[in-house]
Amino acid sequence: MSRFIERHPVWALIVIIAIAVALWLVFAVWPPGLEEAIGRKRVFLNAVFNGVTLGGLYFLVASGFTLIFGLMRNVNLAHGSLYLFGGYVGYAISTATGSWLLSFILAFLLTALVGVLLQVIVFRRMEGQDLRQTMVTIGLSIVFADLMLWACGGDFYQIQTPSWLVGPMDLPLITAVKSSGEPVYLRYPVVRLVIFAASVVIGVGMWLALNRTRIGMIIRAGVDDRDMLAATGVRIQLVFVLVFAFGAGLAGIAGVVGGTFQSLSPGEDIRFLLASLVVVIVGGMGSIPGAALGALIIGLAEQLGSVYIPTYAIVVTFLIMVLVLAIRPQGLLARR
């Protein structure tokens, strides 16, 4: 961090000011002039919270994508299909058993199984052929999309939120002050906060596993130099299968989360593929902290954009990607 400030004092100053302004916007009671200029604070805070929680969901999808890419150089364009598959599995389980948590576990396991099969049957045969692997993932995404359309139809599904998570809660953030001087607090759905907390826990857990354990060390070494790692006698194929399974499983979990937050339908696979592409392009390909930062930026940009400039919201997301590519083509937090 201090190195970054030493190297880029101007950028560091801009970032610090931006963070300060953002914090003030969130915590302060807005003066009337500001409310007139950009609308109610409640709307703004809701957009920010939606953005952050959506960022959590994007992180779940994109971290698996970036992990697989970082280690295996495999741009898995079927990642969106894995997301949708996990969502449908979660829906089936939760309607059959009524258990929301069980649907997470089974969606993770089944999607991870699909990932293992893909790695063992398909990708192991064409190792080192980046372009061909990517083409295969495109073909697979078409096949999966059609199979899922066949099995589930074109309807919208929504996974039932468990009763202990239904409803809003008050957050200690003042949105406005009534004329009587009584503060009004922000009310926000519990389930989104819980899911966001869970994605933070998963993210921290991944960071710890990558940086503090032996398998994490092997994976990091593999990201840096795959051939050298194989030469040291590590069973690299096993590591590949494990990482692919874990990345796919994360997409499956994200599917259940997305099915609870929003809804599942054909076309969602493409949406989340796009989201993970943009997130990893912005954050840096192959970097987990990069995926977290990218997911946060894209989630916020999407939600704030759709509130304040509704018909141009996607352009904001896209402009962020363009800006990052122009200034730092390798992504914000990539090491190269």
Binding site: V75, L274, A313, M321, A326, P329
Partner: peptide, 24 residues
């Protein structure tokens, strides 16, 4: 600005962004 495999990702992102933009 990037090479090889990244081209697919960036051009796919452009295509998808355009699709969502025309929808919005």
């Amino acid at each position: 600005r990037t090479e090889g495999i990244y081209t697919i990702m960036i051009t796919l992102a452009i295509g998808a962004a355009f699709y969502y933009f025309t929808n919005q």
